[in-house]
Each structure stands twice: as C-alpha cells, then as structure tokens.
Design a protein around this nucleic acid. Sequence first.
DNA 1: TGTGTCGATGATATCGGTCCCAAAAGGAGA
DNA 2: TCTCCTTTTGGGACCGATATCATCGACACA
Lengths: 366, 366
Amino acid sequence: MTSQRTPEPDARDAGHAGEERGRRGSGRPTIRDVSRLAGVSRMTVSRVISDPDLVLPATRAKVNKAIADLGYVPDRAAGSLASRKTGFIALMLPTLTNANFAAVAHGLTEILREEDYHLLIAYTDYDTAEEERQLRALLARRPEAIVLTGAPHRRQATRMLVAADIPVAEVADLPSQPIDHAVGFSNYQVGRTAARYLIGKGFTRIGALGASTEGTVIDHRGEERMRGFEEELRYSGLSDADVVRHGSAPVSFAHGAQAMGLLLERDPQVEAVFAVSDLSAVGAVMECQRRGLSVPDQVSIMGFGDFEIGREINPPLTTIHVDFRALGQRTGQVLLDLLSRPEDAREHQRIDVGLSLVERASVKGR
Amino acid sequence: MTSQRTPEPDARDAGHAGEERGRRGSGRPTIRDVSRLAGVSRMTVSRVISDPDLVLPATRAKVNKAIADLGYVPDRAAGSLASRKTGFIALMLPTLTNANFAAVAHGLTEILREEDYHLLIAYTDYDTAEEERQLRALLARRPEAIVLTGAPHRRQATRMLVAADIPVAEVADLPSQPIDHAVGFSNYQVGRTAARYLIGKGFTRIGALGASTEGTVIDHRGEERMRGFEEELRYSGLSDADVVRHGSAPVSFAHGAQAMGLLLERDPQVEAVFAVSDLSAVGAVMECQRRGLSVPDQVSIMGFGDFEIGREINPPLTTIHVDFRALGQRTGQVLLDLLSRPEDAREHQRIDVGLSLVERASVKGR
DNA sequence: TGTGTCGATGATATCGGTCCCAAAAGGAGA
DNA sequence: TCTCCTTTTGGGACCGATATCATCGACACA
C-alpha cells in the first residue's frame, strides 16, 4: 500500500479553513489546491505532470482525479521561473503576409510542437528600426533560442543577441559570417543562378525587377538576389542597365506590374526578366499580357520562390524553388537537438538546404 | 538631494562577495544586480521600468545607467507571476498559410504592440482534435484574452475556455450564439449574397465549389458559406445539384481546378460558379481556360476573400470582400478596451464588419 | 537482527519580479 | 517649532511552480 505519512502542513493554509482575506491569488486552482485535494505534497503533483513514472500508479490516479475535478491547468510562467526553462523559441520575421515566411513558421511549429515548445512570433514589417524594439520585447520572454531571417542590422540588436547567450539560428539566407547557426540558402546564388540560366538561353538584353533600397524598409534577402543577378550579368560582359529597383518591400503583384511597365518604357527591346519574387513575376506577366506582349514569345519572365500561383497561371512560371516548410522543419530539428545537449557539446551548424531551378513555359530561349 | 538611507541589506548577498556556489540563477543580470549597482532598492528599479514618474529624476538616471551598464532585460515570466498579468493574448487559427488569416494576425499585432501585449499564436491545421491540445497549451501560458476563429467544437474545449475566465473573442465569423465577444461577418450571408447576385444576373444553372465535410479536418467557415449558398438556391427554386464538395481544407488553386473539372463533367451546361475561396476560384478559371471554355462568356466564376491574385488575373475576379486586417485591428481595440476596464464593466461586444461585393469581369449576366 | 540500497514521497529554499504597507524627508500651515 | 500631509523610497511577503536534499519503508543480504 501507499505510505501514510501526513502530507506537508502548508503554513498558508493552516488554521481556519476558507480564510481568503488578503490573498493575492487569481482564484484559479493551483498546484497547492490539487495537492490538498489529493492528499499528497505539491512535489508529487508536479511529478505526476512532468514525469509520471516516478510516482506509484495508485498515487498517480488520485492526483489525476484531483486535477480533473478542479480543472487544473499548470501555470507555465511559474514553472519557467523555477526551472529556468520557458519552452519558448522566438521567431522574428519581416512579415507573416508572405506564403514562404508563413511556411517557415509552419514547419518550425510542426517540429517544436512535439517537444512542447512554443513559438513566439514577432515581425518587423521589413523595418530595421522596429527590429530592435521587437527583439527587446522577445528577449524579455526569455526564449531558449531565437530564429531570425538573416542577421540583425543594428549594432545594438546584435549586442543584445550576444548578451542573451542563447542559440541563434539565421534562416532563409546563408550569411557569410553567421552569428551562430544558419539554415538556409544563398540568396546571392539565387540571383547568379537565375542570371546564368537566362544567359545560357541566349538572351543578351536581360532585366531584373526588385524593390528600392532606400529608407529603413528594406528586403535584404531580395536585395541579395538582385546583387547576385547584377554581378553575374557583369561577369558575363552584359549590361545591367535593365535592372529596375522600384517601390518598397514587400513586393507583390502590383509591384511587378508597375516595375515591368517602367522597364518596358526604359527598354522596349528587353528579352528576358528576372523578378525577385514570383508574386512580382506574375504581376509582370499580367502587365505584358495587358500590353499585348506575348510571354514567352516576346519576353521571357522568371521569378523566385515557387509560389503556388506561379504553377497556375498561363504560361506557368519558370522559377527557383526553395522548400521553406522543410527549411522551418530542419531549423526546428537543429534547435531541439541543440537544446537537448549540454552547452559545451554544441557546435555551429551551417546547413544549406539548396535550391532548384524549375523550368516551366514562361521562359523560351532564343 | 536624494535620501541617504542604506539600501536594503539583501540577505542573499550578505557576507563574502562573489560567493556563487549553489545558486540556481541563470547568470543573467537580475533586478537585484541593478539595484545593487545603482545603490537603490529593487522596488525603485521596478518603478523606473514600469512607472518612471514615481521616481526622482536623479535616482532614475542612476538606475537607467546601471540598467544600461549591465545590459539588464527584465524577465517577464517573473513579472507575470507577481503581477498576475502576462501581457499575452492568445490567437488560435486554422492556419497561417492563408493571406486572410495572416492579415488578421497582422492587424491584431499592430494594435496590441502599442500596449506591449504579445500575441501567442497557435494553429490547428483545420483539425478539431488538434484544437483541444493547442488550447490547453495556450491556456497554460495564462493569456489575458483569447481570440478564436469561430467557436471550438469539442465539448471539453469549450469547458476549458469558460474555466479560464478570460475574455474570448470569436473572429472571422459571427456565430448566432457567441461565447463572449465576436468581431466578424456572417459567412452564411456571404453564401446567400453570392447566390442572390448570380441569380440576379439571370443564371439558372448555378454551381458551387467547396471542401469536403468528412473527417476531422473541416473548414467550418467555408462550409457556412456553402450552406448559405445552397439555401438561397433552394429558396429561389433552383437546383443545388451543381454544388460540389471535394477534397479537404485548406482549399487552394489546385482544389479549384480539380473541383471545376468534376463539376464540368457532372454538368457541362453549368452557367455560373461560386467558389468558397478566391484561390479556388482562380484555379477554376484556369481550368476553364485549359479546357477552352471562355470566362465569363461561357462560364461566370466568382470567389470569396478578395485575395490580391484575383485582381491580377485575366479576367479579374468578381468576389466578396472582407477587410481582414481591419478585422484584426478592430478585435485588438475591443480587447484592449476590455482589459483596461474593471471586469464588471464589461459588456458583450458583437461587431459586424460587413462585407462587400466587388464586381469585376469574371461574371457576365445573361 | 543489523545494515545497506533503492524507490516513493515530502520539506524547504528558490526563481525574479511586484504588491502592500511602512518609514523617512521635505514642505505647508498654524 | 510642531503637526500634518505629500512625495519618495524601502522591507518583506508573495506569485506558483521546480530543484535539491532528506526521510521513510521495504527488501535483500550477511
């Protein structure tokens, strides 16, 4: 049978029962209420929740009944404080209103969920100033790790990250000097790959559509693609006169349509165009069609991101594919692995998830 | 001048300095470190952070310097425990990979950010079983309010919500019997509006494209639109034989294409189609074009949600518009208002953000 | 019967903040 | 000068969990 010692006296409850005066509590059942009802100590209740095998089945049953009867839900804030583990992973993105970033969040959640970690999501709307505020707010929640898209761009933000002393994973870009860990692909290589592909198709008047780099609202990853594209053009001895930077991030259909319009006015002879995003590319295709230009017979267009819409339009869009959901999952695995091992056994991870060119009908060589 | 009493002795630090043995702490500076460095009590530091006006400017300056020197970031978990305010608002959505839901999250964040509230996001992938697990995990974080898309569908989940005793806001649908507060629109009315519109255009063979209602993965809001659409057809004496439910939520381009294919095989004479989502509708348009059917000359198609892509395709898509970002903002305002006033002054809110029909070229009357 | 080991459970300190009230200083008014 | 009030600051308990170590039995073995 179970042992019959008296449970802990619990000074706060000694004396007359039901004396509630002056108590700060919220009225919701606490672990103490459960322990009293079940006739065990708080520690035993805690064990039933976090590691049931340590408790005798009979005791466990009593405790579980008490939990159910009271509708007890443990307070993780209190638990975090005591255990020094919050179960939070922070995620800072430029925006959620982008299918690929949302896919990263989705993939991450799928993995973290299993280990009862929660994602704390913040977004910056591509604003470098907001980044710092958000980071401070996130760190106050004591996440056990933080996931960022690319390095932070303020000195102060980087300092805060280092001081936080938690694993940092940079995703969706592979910086040459990662702060800590990195899971992603090279946006610069995306640009170069796109340029080489179009050059290989025999085009010589090649353009690009990206966002402006002025102000604080900047899509750094998109700009990396533009840079890679431009450099490849130059290496190949081609002009970068048809590279258009227009409007502010995030880019979408309307951006592509406008930028394509500008480009066509600047150079009506342009043969092929790379857009930093499929959304932009789709907008460009539509703009061409409105102007009576046939894609791909008169202008070839390709994008980046392999958004679902690209597959559906006519002609289907040639693009560069990155599996963002898998990227999120992979990041989750890296972090779980990192967090489950002692600090001194953690080596830097740098994982390139790669990219692939998806040829569809919107590009047709000369 | 400032007062010169000795600051609190702080038993934990008495005796020889630097004796770190056996301490549970994390190594990060705490409010106690700041108070020692600044030569004030912890309470004064706390005040400088949460209500600076209560502290003399000179003292405030000392404290702020100590905070900066140490790189101190307050631990919100500890603060939450003591103050009974976590600063969390929970948000449970079917998915984030949907521009409209992402827009809700976005709008909410914009508003809550100002008052330093954080959104805790969970998603269920349209799975009723997952809903309950996620809800339990969310409530363990002690959010001060919770935002849901429509009522939870498990008895147990509803019970947990009521027990949590916090404001509940249902968004993106207006249930006839809201649990607490509701901000949204009637999906049922969307369906009826769409049907009335198509009927008014003189069509009599009218179809609809939605998701299957089998299994646990169900898009209840989409189904409400389907139901409203069907009922309006019947009220008007028309057949609902062309209403197609196919595939599982979430629906997208490929769904629309497939479902449209099925519909055309079932009834090649169909004149007009309503899809539960613009994404589906776009897929349907593309499918028609692949089959050589002209939209809108041979088939009219309309959708719901006013997704950006609908504006860009040829022909532009007729749809029903709801401003989801504003919906999120409105919800945020309601919640902030609710949380800033005493509990007994809180009345139930029911806000209809309305909907509007956007006529474009994809529907052409007989 | 004595003793060592192991499994189950309890007692207490602690995590890092805030609440509540008390104390000290400074100024106004009698 | 004394009292009273306001402003500023501090002391200690407390929020609701968990870490850590102690304790109690039961059992094996000598």
